[in-house]
Design a protein around this nucleic acid. Sequence first.
DNA 1: GCAAATTAATGATTTATTCAAG
DNA 2: CTTGAATAAATCATTAATTTGC
Lengths: 187, 187
Amino acid sequence: MDERSMSGFCIRSGSCVRSGSTTTTGTKCGRWNPTNEQVKVLTELFSSGLRTPSTDQIQKISTQLSFYGKIESKNVFYWFQNHKARERQKRRRKASNSDDDDDNNIRRENTTSGNSSSQNFSQLYQVSEPKRVIETLELFPLNSFGESGSKNLRNYTNECRDNNNMFSYTMREQMDHPPLDLCLSFM
Amino acid sequence: MDERSMSGFCIRSGSCVRSGSTTTTGTKCGRWNPTNEQVKVLTELFSSGLRTPSTDQIQKISTQLSFYGKIESKNVFYWFQNHKARERQKRRRKASNSDDDDDNNIRRENTTSGNSSSQNFSQLYQVSEPKRVIETLELFPLNSFGESGSKNLRNYTNECRDNNNMFSYTMREQMDHPPLDLCLSFM
DNA sequence: GCAAATTAATGATTTATTCAAG
DNA sequence: CTTGAATAAATCATTAATTTGC
C-alpha cells in the first residue's frame, strides 16, 4: 500500500530547523527573502511579458540577480509561479462579474413537466462537483515558432473509430426526431 | 411523450430564438445553436472529465439537454469532438494563457523539434515524486556544474532549503558588484 | 519607543488537471 | 487504460507589516 499518510517523514512544515536562536549569526535557513532590486527586476520581467521562464531563462535570471543578493534558481521559478497565479487571482477578484455562476440547473432530473428524461444525469456522469469552470483563456496568436501542426490528425482518427460505433446505434431508443440521417462523410 | 419538435424552443425552419441567450441573436436555424444552459452543462461535463462519451451517454445527454432547447445526439457528439480538439489546440498554441501582456514562451509540446531546454523545473523543484523517499533526492540532472553530484542534495525538503548548488555562486558577499543594470534583453 | 500579538504578503509544497505517448 | 510531463490551483508556512498595551 502506498498511503503516504502513514509515512513517518515530516515532510511538511517543520522542515527547516532553525537551530533555536533565530536572530543570531546570520544564515538563517529560512526562506528566500528577495531584495528590492531583485523584486524590481523580476517585476519588470513579468511586466514585459515573461510569465513562465524556461529553464535557461531561469538560470540566467538567477545568475544575474545573484549580484543583488542570495538567490537560487528555484526562487526565480517559484516567484514566477506565484506571481502569475496571484496576478490572475487579483484580476479575477476584480472582474468577478460575467454571467457565470447562474448555477441554473445542471442536475435537474426530476423537474416538472414530467419530462421524458427518465434516465438520470447523475448516473450518466457521476460527476460529483463541477469543480471549475473552464477558464476563458485567450491565446496569443504569437507568430509561429516552427510548430508543424499537422500531426494530430491521428487523434481524430481515433475518435473516428469511436464514432463508428457511435453512429451505429442511430437513434434507436425513442428518437423523436427524424431519422437523423447523419451522413458521416467525415469518416 | 413530448416531441422536441413541439417544444417551444426552436423550430427547425423558423427563426431560431435562443431562449434568453445573449449571443448571436439573429442566427438562422441552419445549424444547432446551443443555449447557454446547454453549453453550461456540456462544459461542466467536459470539465468533469468526460471526453468521448459513449453512445449511451450521448443519448442521455441529448435527451436531457433537449429540455433546454432543440438538440440532437449528433450535436452532442460533435460538441465533444470539437471541444476536445479545440482545448487541445488552445493548449498547444500557447501553453501559458491568460494574463495580460503577451507571453513569450512556447514550451509544452515542442513537437520534438529539438526545442531548447524545456521546463524541467517541475521535475527539478516541484518534487512531487519522491514523497516518501526524501532522504536522497537528485535534484539537478541538468548538471550545470560538474560537481553537483557529489554535493548530494539530500534532505531537500527536510533540511535547510539552501542546498542547491545549481549555481554555486555562493553568495558573493562583500560584493562591490557593478551596477548590473540587467537589461531585459539578456535573454 | 518597544516588543508581544495580530494580520497581511508571499515563498514553498502539495494536489489535481490536461494532453499526449506507449 | 496507464503513465509522463507540465502546469495551475489550492494550500501550507514563514516572514514582514501593523497594531496594541505598556
